[in-house]
């Protein structure tokens, strides 16, 4: 098990010009990334939709890599999207899951069957052609060239420490600096997409 922030730092040199949807890793990624216009730090628009959103983005931008840092709680709400992604097999889609075994933003309550779910097996069964599982930072970091160097879709699940938040929402530090609409507008400007 390792810290999300450490993995994101290891990922940064391998990013290239990929679009990054940092999911629950967003609060770290906004400080690490040096290409904020290609980042989509969304927080929590509606839980269970990050993979579907990033997949839609990958379909719309097939020539550019889309890297998603999903979470197991979000994915559990929408396991069916694995089937849709696997059916379309977007070669530019890289699906990482940060598995902290709990709902960290609500106080750390365990997700259903937290310690016994093999998400990589679920993805494989859904039809993802490549899957990986990591529990150690060194192994996960060392595999990044291979993971990102071959076509997607690829599914990578990693055991990470939970960044548990137990304060009332009004007392938490806000890490998102842009609205969802601003985030998308910046991306579209960067990609030359007419709004």
């Amino acid at each position: 098990m390792f810290h999300t922030e450490d993995f994101l730092k290891a990922f940064k040199p391998h990013r290239g010009d990929a679009i990054v949807v940092p999911g629950r890793g967003g609060k770290h990624w906004v400080r690490i990334s040096d290409q904020p216009d290609l980042d989509l730090p969304l927080g929590d628009p509606a839980m269970g939709g990050h993979a579907a959103f990033a997949f839609g983005l990958a379909l719309a931008q097939p020539k550019r890599k889309v890297v998603l840092f999903d979470s197991e709680g979000d994915l559990q709400m929408a396991l069916g999207i694995l089937l849709t992604i696997a059916e379309h097999k977007p070669e530019n889609f890289y699906h990482f899951v940060l598995d902290n075994e709990c709902y960290a933003t609500t106080g750390g309550q365990p997700v259903p069957n937290a310690k016994n779910v093999d998400y990589a097996m679920l993805a494989k069964g859904a039809g993802y052609p490549r899957t990986y599982s990591f529990t150690e930072l060194d192994a996960a970091s060392a595999a990044l060239p291979e993971i990102l160097g071959k076509p997607g879709p690829v599914f990578v699940t990693m055991k990470v420490h939970a960044d548990i938040e137990n304060k009332p929402i009004t007392e938490r530090v806000r890490w998102r600096t842009k609205t969802w609409v601003q985030v998308v507008a910046d991306l579209q400007r960067k990609l030359g997409i007419a709004a």
Binding site: L40, A46, A52, F53, G56, G80, I81, E87, I193
Partner: peptide, 26 residues
């Protein structure tokens, strides 16, 4: 047209948001 079948309708909204963000018309 590209058809994107989803197994639950709520997923369609997030897929559509991603498509639209990337410049497609869902």
């Amino acid at each position: 047209l590209t058809l994107v079948a989803v197994p639950r309708e709520g997923l369609a909204c997030a897929v559509a948001a991603g498509l639209a963000s990337g410049g497609a018309v869902p």
